[in-house]
Simulated scan of single mutants.
Amino acid sequence: MKLNYKWIWALLLSTTILGCSQADTSNQTEAAQETTTATADKAKKETIKTILFFGNSLTAGYGLEPSQAFPALIQERIDSLDLPYRVVNAGVSGETTAGGKSRIDWLLKKPVDVFVLELGANDGLRGIDPESTYNNLKTIMEKVRDKNPEVQIILAGMQLPPSMGQKYTKEFSEVYTRLAKEQNVHLIPFLLEGVGGDPKLNQADGIHPTTEGQKILANNVWNVLEKVVSAPVNP
């Protein structure tokens, strides 16, 4: 039997071309998938927004590891829910509202989408005029809004022990409810709710929460913050 070499050659050539074509298609598909994944990752990264916790030693987690402070616990919760937010802890021990007013400009060099303001406790413990605390907190919020009019502001309310005097403690507490109403911001009624005054949940100084106390603070914050971060994120 005489072999038709031309036919065999044509068959081999067509098979090779087909194989190359399939390989090229496969490579193109993989490349397209990689590009799509990279694009999605980039888009996700670009949509991640910043939550700035601006406060004193309560925010900083005085006496504890940074990972035990309530802002870090909030980040863990956000990550577990796969929400597009990153937390920045800008707490400084001993900070007053006057100190915060001076410091905030530097922090606003980067975009802030959610601003949690936790200041005033040190003012109260030092007996500073509540009107001064009010004005400082108001100025801080105005500066934040000047940088981003769309920012969501959460104000952490604070209360003082009765030892500071009934009149003073009342005026001090009203600073937060007054600001929340006038500035139309979210209010955490009392950051230390369930922790303040409980020896088991505070360190030896009786002021700064333990790790268990910080967990309760995180829950107090989350009760208000959840509504903000769960809302649809604008690109």
Results as ranks from 00 to 15, higher is better:
3 L>D: 10
7 W>H: 07
12 L>C: 09
13 L>I: 07
19 G>E: 14
21 S>V: 15
23 A>D: 02
27 N>R: 10
34 E>I: 07
37 T>K: 14
40 A>C: 04
42 K>P: 06
43 A>Q: 10
59 T>P: 06
61 G>S: 10
69 A>C: 05
72 A>T: 08
82 D>P: 06
88 V>Y: 03
88 V>L: 12
92 V>Y: 15
95 E>T: 09
104 I>T: 01
105 D>P: 01
106 W>S: 00
106 W>P: 00
115 F>C: 00
115 F>V: 01
124 G>Q: 02
127 G>V: 09
129 D>F: 11
134 Y>F: 15
134 Y>I: 09
143 K>L: 00
144 V>W: 01
146 D>T: 15
152 Q>N: 15
152 Q>S: 15
154 I>H: 03
157 G>P: 12
157 G>A: 09
163 S>H: 02
163 S>M: 12
171 E>T: 08
171 E>I: 06
172 F>C: 04
172 F>A: 04
175 V>P: 05
175 V>D: 01
177 T>L: 02
179 L>V: 05
189 P>L: 07
191 L>R: 01
192 L>D: 02
195 V>E: 02
195 V>Q: 00
197 G>W: 08
201 L>N: 11
209 P>V: 13
224 V>W: 03
226 E>A: 14
228 V>D: 02
234 N>C: 03
235 P>E: 14
